[in-house]
Nucleic acid binder design. Sequence first.
DNA 1: ATTCATAATTTGTCTAGACATCCGTATCTT
DNA 2: AAGATACGGATGTCTAGACAAATTATGAAT
Lengths: 241, 241
Amino acid sequence: MEEIERGSGVSLWRQIEQTLLQEISAGVLHPGDKLPTEQELSARFDVNRHTVRRAVAALVQRGIVSVTQGRGSFVQEEVIDYPIGKRTRFSENLKRQNRSPGGRLVRSEQRPANGIVSKGLEIPPGTPVLMIELVGEADSVPISTSLHFFPWDRFAGMAEGYAETHSITQALARCGVADYTRKQTNITARLPSAEEARLLRQMPGRPILHVESVNLDETGTPIQFSIVSFAGDRVQMVVEN
Amino acid sequence: MEEIERGSGVSLWRQIEQTLLQEISAGVLHPGDKLPTEQELSARFDVNRHTVRRAVAALVQRGIVSVTQGRGSFVQEEVIDYPIGKRTRFSENLKRQNRSPGGRLVRSEQRPANGIVSKGLEIPPGTPVLMIELVGEADSVPISTSLHFFPWDRFAGMAEGYAETHSITQALARCGVADYTRKQTNITARLPSAEEARLLRQMPGRPILHVESVNLDETGTPIQFSIVSFAGDRVQMVVEN
DNA sequence: ATTCATAATTTGTCTAGACATCCGTATCTT
DNA sequence: AAGATACGGATGTCTAGACAAATTATGAAT
């Protein structure tokens, strides 16, 4: 056990940090993998648990590792996999990859449904809908801007619901939708507008993923039409077959 | 002593962090001021020293406080005062404001002295001089780019000396200059070139401070002519009268 | 007065232990 | 089968103490 050296002038926690860093970059630990528990690490390096914690904290600050109380420490994924399926949930997707989901409401307004919205929601053009604009975040880094359209008569309270819960799923639940499924998802690539590049903090020349989707309630009625722009640098769509 | 609340659901170190943050923003603690010692803070809040350290570490990560072993913790200055005087020393200036000086050698080359260089060093035009280009940093943030000219015959080893010590003063000492004084400093303002804006990570539209100076050795002989560009956003020249 | 060695002060690192909090799972209950 | 509860495992917080390392202050010798 000659992993780290005492009295070498380099503090133990820095040596542990470097050792873990090497193992991550060398592929011994893959992105998404769970690090050994603090107890295991302290046994392996023969140091106190607090010393291990100091090393892991340094890796967290570098953005290389994420830690969740009660679960453990995980190697960060370099790109976020965003699975598309029948039950696509923004927060769930991120949590599954050990990232902390977040989001903020940019604006919300009532407006008449235009062509693609009326087609997606299967309502006559001109029917009033609620539109909300969100910025989705993973570990406090913006990864998506999105517009969501809901029939006004059933979901007038969605904006307030989202502002309070930061979750579309929970906001829908407050409007009486216990569960919902995704009907369809269309994905294309394009370059961002100046506003999108600003919100996503992405270089204007880098492409974004343009995603349009429709969600249905339990009766099969369309309840949500969404247009989401993902930062192409940081997100990768995964369509499960 | 009802400063912080135990068992309130908010950890003690976060409450201490907030308290110190408020006092800094409220002006109780001014930029440059020394924070109370860890021992004093732990006595004031009636917590262990480690708990105080956790709070201070959070402030350091925010860039609001800097800590130096053996000296103490200090509220960060928003702009760096750069005193100009007989004994102007880059590293000393920064250390005096509780910032950690740094620098890197961009390039070095021998060339004949042109007009202003020969005038500054008081040598005939065409005399070979050593030119080195540096980027100066404070707390790892670049604050200046600079060109320095030295008579080649005496200071051929300056580039190596600087590369090893990251200090012009120490590099000069290796060339036999125990002490030196500043003869003259000229300061003007101008807009940066694209290259300078890149090196200083500054918006191209923001002005920079253009400083030209001459240093003398103990015999009064010019040994160094410098052209330094400071980031105008982050540095403020102070001429002591 | 300056220089040099020493002491005091202050932050950095490490250990040890206790309890809290959160998460996931297993189990019991209904 | 579904929900509530309990438990074990993992990270989070706090305390206490010891020694190391860097800086600054002190004082003695020249």
